[in-house]
């Protein structure tokens, strides 16, 4: 995808007039390709501070891809992502992440508490062992999600919702200011859903920002105050009350854009050269 670099890559967004350095997350002109086929087209987004942001869109709209591209987990073909006006590398300690539950092997020999401790590893640093204070912090985080009695439980003995809460507790243990959560509400029980919502409220109360990939449209107005509607490109973004409209939803979910799909395939073919 190098072929799309017409101009020297921007190294900083600070010279862009519409950019505000206080924004926890600014995304500029990000395109992401899987196997040379673009799945996200020129994403432009600026997250407001102190807010709960839902990313909604149909399956395959690139919601998870968007989060991963922000976190440098997958390469971006073009574009720039900044956190509080600086690169991800510089702000890493201020950012927390809750991956999708399916992304790990839950049969791994590890207890809930040990998983949560992983959120502290960055602060502990290379080679140093996990100390008691970190363990206590981990327990505290487990308590916040109502899982303190399962601390010593093996993760494969937890239900899906409980596993999700362990992941959430791990992110809390990171003590970040900006959180990315990938489908935390997917397939969880009511207790977990309440617990996650409680944590979200609490984080917001502490002046933090949370970006959540969300699939249940009916709860968006209840849980979130901002929304980013995504379907391979940004359809709309802004306060839920303003942009979460039927019209925008129709645009977001109104089927795939066959032409965009087609040209994506054409690009992939040109890059891969098959057939």
């Amino acid at each position: 995808m190098k072929l799309f670099q017409h101009q020297p890559e921007l190294t900083s967004l600070s010279d862009r007039p519409e950019h505000s350095p206080e924004s926890p997350l600014s995304v500029h002109s990000v395109t992401v390709a899987y196997h040379e086929k673009p799945v996200l087209w020129d994403i432009e987004y600026e997250a407001p501070r102190h807010s709960l942001i839902a990313i909604v869109g149909p399956n395959g709209a690139g919601k998870s891809t968007f989060i991963k591209a922000c976190l440098d987990l997958i390469p971006r073909a073009t574009g720039l992502v900044e956190f509080w006006g600086k690169s991800y590398r510089d702000q890493r300690t201020r950012i927390g992440y809750v991956p999708q539950r399916e992304s790990v092997d839950w049969d791994f020999p590890i207890s809930a508490e040990e998983v949560v401790c992983m959120g502290r590893y960055r602060k502990i640093g290379w080679f140093r062992p996990i100390t008691r204070s970190h363990r206590e912090k981990a327990l505290e985080c487990l308590e916040q999600v109502g899982m303190e009695s399962f601390a010593k439980r093996q993760i494969n003995q937890l239900s899906g919702g409980q596993q999700q809460r362990v992941f959430l507790a791990r992110a809390l243990a990171q003590e970040a200011e900006l959180y990315f959560m990938d489908e935390p509400f997917a397939g969880v029980d009511a207790a977990t859903e309440r617990s996650i919502v409680g944590v979200l409220e609490q984080l917001k109360g502490e002046g933090k920002t949370v970006v959540v990939v969300h699939h249940d449209l009916s709860t968006v107005p209840e849980y979130f105050d901002h929304v980013l509607m995504l379907n391979a490109r940004v359809i709309a973004s802004g306060p839920v009350r303003e942009v979460f409209t039927d019209e925008n939803l129709k645009k977001t979910y109104g089927g795939r854009l066959s032409l965009l799909e087609e040209v994506g395939e054409a690009i992939a073919r040109a890059g891969r050269g098959v057939r």
Binding site: F4, T31, P38, D42, I267
Partner: peptide
């Protein structure tokens, strides 16, 4: 910028 990318692939 988006059209800039797409224009080259028009069959």
């Amino acid at each position: 910028p988006m059209a800039e990318r797409l224009e080259h692939f028009n069959t």
